[in-house]
Write a protein that binds this DNA or RNA. Structure first.
Lengths: 199, 199
DNA sequence: GATATTACAATTTACATTTAATGTAAGTTG
DNA sequence: CAACTTACATTAAATGTAAATTGTAATATC
């Protein structure tokens, strides 16, 4: 039994809750471990039993957000109907979630963006995840004959590169105040058309 | 007759030369007006007869680089042959020039990037320039029947958005160590194919 | 034995002080 | 009179120092 009366899990959860609140209220730069500890009623050193270091707390939050997104996108990808439409919807959902995050949670987005720039493993896993989800969608389109792609892998790469302006965090940030959904829709449509066309 | 024995033009030229050398040698952050003035053999105040402020010197350098690029790209755009190939070559040249700049002149690229983020008028002019050049290329393709685009304007927008990962300064910086020319070629090809397809 | 505290070292941040750089205006010079 | 200097005001950078924060280890508690 720990002294706090909290299980390790509970303490981790509370730590994350408090961190999110503090980062939102005072900004990422002014986020202090000692403040979290005070809120929890422990010394800051106690936190090191549950997190390797300070950024690990922030990374946990980013990782969870990415996981939620991954799951939400899986649900979009799994909807019935034409693969072509599913791919468009999938990119739209991907874009919209990131844009909503920048707008609604700018400081936590900043923390996420730092994890991206640091190439944190959980970020790479997320990217692999996105890649795999899209690959399945393209393969589905190929199976039904909807898409006539010679190389699903190449198609995925082309799609992800061509939509970089809509899902790369820095680009999402740059265009946060514009509604670019229709534009994204057109770009994805054109690329899909191009992938199936002639060759 | 100015006291320096230099005409205004000559002094401006020397100022720019010296600035480029200093920024390259000591980095953008350590670039000082007083150092330029000392090299020129004048007081720093003299520089204000030729430039409105410090960043104006750096902006002049960036603007010139953009002008060179604009001209070089016009030459690429004007080469005879299929418009489709010209468009690909045009994007490749655009991408290659920016990548070469980041790699060969990182500190001056940083200065350019700041001008971009500040939406300086000369940057907007450059972007308009790129847009116009590409529009002419697309129209050329439409005239020869090579491209079957319903809206040249829309085509240009789609092409520029889909290639953002290859010409946006932040993205060029992010991928400076990878050779992505083949990938760019594929993306442009696919978009071009998609623009002409069906509809 | 996991969880916490205390005590301490290493690092960061905050702030006050100084110094240097930038920008302006009035006066000087070729 | 355009181009410069000098002199000065404003702003920004560098320096030094105290305080706070982060991270670690040895020890105590449930």
């Amino acid at each position: 039994m720990p002294k706090t009366g909290l299980s390790s899990e509970e303490l981790v959860e509370k730590t994350i809750e408090i961190t999110m609140e503090l980062v939102r209220r005072h900004g990422l730069d002014k986020f202090r471990l000692v403040d979290v500890a005070r809120e929890l009623g422990v010394t800051h050193a106690a936190l090191y039993n549950h997190f390797p270091d300070k950024v690990a707390i922030l990374d946990t939050i980013s990782e969870r957000w990415l996981s939620e997104m991954d799951e939400a996108l899986v649900r979009v990808a799994e909807t019935r109907g034409p693969a072509r439409l599913a791919i468009i919807e999938w990119f739209m959902a991907y874009h919209r979630r990131k844009r909503n995050k920048v707008r609604g949670d700018p400081e936590l987005f900043r923390s996420f963006n730092m994890a991206v720039e640091a190439d944190k493993p959980f970020v790479l896993r997320h990217l692999q995840n996105m890649h795999d989800q899209l690959l399945r969608l393209v393969e589905r389109g190929a199976e039904t004959g909807e898409l006539d792609v010679p190389s699903p892998e190449g198609a995925v790469e082309a799609l992800l590169e061509a939509t970089m302006a809509f899902h790369h965090p820095l680009m999402v940030l740059e265009h946060k105040d514009e509604d670019r959904e229709l534009l994204l829709q057109r770009v994805v449509s054109v690329v899909l058309a191009g992938l199936s066309a002639n060759r």
